[in-house]
Amino acid sequence: MRRTVLAPLALAAVVLGAQPASAGAGTGWEPAPSAPWDVDAGLRCDFPVHGEPVIDEVMKRVLDTYPDGTAKRVAYKGDLVVRVTNTETGAFHDADASGSALVEHRTDGSQFWAVHGPVLVGVGEGRGNLPRGLYIIDGVYTMDISSAGYKAVNLVHGTTDDLCARID
């Protein structure tokens, strides 16, 4: 089991280290901008939350496709800082989500992520093996997202930072 987890992470490290984040045309890396988002009270935190990138230099590279041309495996890397704001109070936290990931998109709509570094993850009530919330998960880990949206985070080595508590 451990070898199964580490093999995708080793592959991600090799693939993601191949080009600098500023690499563009001709390298296969292209910008992957994040859109601002809003979440109603009770879905992730007890209060409504707004998220908006303040630094967004994320790049993606499609590594493999299905016969119909849709992405099968995609690598992501680059700096991303998201301002997460409690819209009731105005309290905010600038969350560093600058991790790198190798994401496998499965034909049933599920995904498997092999991650190194921090990524912002939202979990709904009963929709993951973490309690409802918004988290920066940092370290070396995998995340299996079912086609129904259930998120199973498996930390090899890392931490979770509860963003709801930071902006409450």
Score class of each variant (00 low, 15 high):
Val153His: 02
Asn86Cys: 06
Thr160Val: 13
Ser100His: 09
Gly17Glu: 03
Pro118Val: 11
Asp64Trp: 06
Gly78Tyr: 13
Asp96Gly: 04
Lys72Glu: 01
Pro20Ser: 07
Asp64Leu: 14
Tyr66Thr: 09
Leu63Val: 08
Ala21Asp: 12
Val119Arg: 05
Ala23Pro: 05
Ala32Thr: 01
His105Ala: 10
His116Thr: 15
Asp162Ala: 07
Ser34Pro: 05
Asp168Cys: 06
Glu52Arg: 15
Met143Cys: 07
Ala75Ile: 08
Arg73Val: 12
Ala97Lys: 00
Asp38Leu: 07
Ser100Gly: 14
Thr160Gly: 08
Gly78Phe: 11
Pro48Leu: 12
Ala41Val: 10
His50Asp: 11
Glu88Thr: 15
Arg44Leu: 15
Arg3Cys: 10
Asp46Asn: 04
Arg83Trp: 00
Asp79Pro: 02
Thr4Pro: 06
Thr85Lys: 01
Pro53Lys: 08
Pro36Asn: 04
Val14Thr: 11
Lys77Gly: 06
Ala71Cys: 03
Ala91Glu: 12
Arg2Cys: 11
Gly128Pro: 00
Arg106Cys: 04
Pro20Lys: 09
Leu9Ile: 12
Ser100Cys: 11
Pro118Arg: 11
Leu16Ile: 07
Asp138Ser: 03
Gly24Tyr: 13
Val103Arg: 11
Glu104Ala: 14
Asn129Ala: 07
Glu104Asp: 15
Arg44Gln: 13
Ala101Lys: 02
Asn129Lys: 02
Asn154Thr: 06
Gly17Phe: 05
Thr87Met: 01
Val58Glu: 08
Ala25Gln: 12
Arg166Phe: 06
Gly128His: 05
Asn86Arg: 14
Val153Glu: 00
Thr65Ile: 05
Pro118Gly: 06
Val54Gly: 11
Val74Met: 05
Asp46Ala: 10
Lys151Asp: 05
Val82Pro: 01
